[in-house]
Simulated assay, not measured.
Amino acid sequence: MTSTVPAPGSLPQALGSARATEIPTAQNSGSALQAVLLDMDGTLVDTEGFWWDVEVEVFARLGHALDDSWRHVVVGGPMTRSAGFLIEATGADIDLAELTVLLNQGFEERIADALPLMPGAARLLAELSEYAVPTALVSASHRRIIDRVLGSLGSHHFGLSVAGDEVRRTKPHPDPYLVAAAGLGVDPTRCAVVEDTATGVAAAEAAGCHVVAVPSVAPIAPAERRTVVSSLEAVDLAFLRGLMPTS
């Protein structure tokens, strides 16, 4: 069972709220790493392709074909941005609210049949839970989608989750990660974030987090406080602890 957790007073209430589950949130005393914040689509679950397929199908019913090059524009961003872009690019006669409903419905139908995990995702979540590392799920997807996915991932793995429709500004803004860190009671600069898109990476870095990028659709270059790996199979607790400065 989940409950809403307001952000602490030090964080502007305008950032929104997070959904919490009962899991230990004490800082891991053996490491400078205080928490791990995980993206969902394309990072833990192999669903970035699902979203694009649904967008293609919905716009086909509206009489429009999507250019495959647009996939890189809409991946990893908030629903309002991707849907708004596609409406403008195609000239489709539909408003943003109606399109958002159709896209969410189509995605829910897709994941009802199968929800493939990314390689290494189940092992990483199990390890973080075993060592009681405070962990949050931070996604640009809406709450209705996150709750469906949590049923498969296991909500017990996460201290809280932050949805794109629960913050005033979602990715690429830092708000979702600031909300997650505040909800767990940790310093964002002592958090490791795992992301698969440039949009998510930008959000995490703007929040001051250390980032592990696992590119799913478009390449992501290494940078300061950013490590790029080819798969979650390369990521474990020791790896994440190693991202933190020793001083």
Rank of each mutant, 00 (worst) to 15 (best):
E98T: 15
V235P: 07
R143E: 13
L115K: 12
R110A: 03
M79E: 07
E22G: 12
N28Q: 06
A218D: 15
P6E: 15
L237D: 09
D165C: 11
T90Y: 00
E233Q: 11
Q105T: 15
A122C: 10
I145C: 03
E109T: 15
A132P: 00
V45H: 01
A35M: 10
G9D: 15
V5H: 12
G242C: 10
P222N: 13
R143D: 09
V56C: 11
M244L: 07
P219N: 06
A35S: 13
E57Q: 15
R19P: 01
D39W: 05
E55N: 12
T170I: 00
E88W: 06
L125Y: 02
E48L: 05
E88N: 12
A7P: 05
P215C: 08
A35I: 04
F158W: 01
G183Q: 03
R226H: 10
R190M: 04
E166C: 10
L232W: 07
T246Q: 14
G42T: 04
G42A: 04
S17K: 14
R144V: 14
S139D: 09
R225V: 03
A218F: 04
T2W: 12
D113E: 14
R148I: 07
V201Y: 03
V138A: 04
V36Q: 02
H72K: 13
L38V: 07
G16L: 11
P188K: 00
L115V: 09
V149E: 07
V56E: 12
L102P: 02
V201F: 00
S155R: 10
V5C: 09
T246N: 13
L153N: 05
T135W: 02
M40E: 05
A121T: 06
G185W: 04
A207V: 02
S247D: 12
M1I: 11
H173D: 11
A97N: 10
E127P: 05
I220S: 08
A65C: 01
E55C: 05
L153C: 06
A35G: 12
M1W: 03
I94Y: 01
S161N: 05
V217T: 15
C191V: 06
A202L: 04
A202F: 01
L178T: 01
F59H: 13
L99W: 03
H157Y: 11
A7F: 08
V193T: 04
A112G: 13
S155D: 11
L237W: 06
P172K: 03
E233Y: 07
E48C: 02
I146F: 05
V228Y: 05
A218W: 01
V214Y: 00
A83P: 10
E205Y: 01
I94N: 05
V36T: 06
T2S: 15
E166I: 03
Y131K: 14
R71Y: 13
V167M: 08
S82G: 15
A65D: 12
S29W: 02
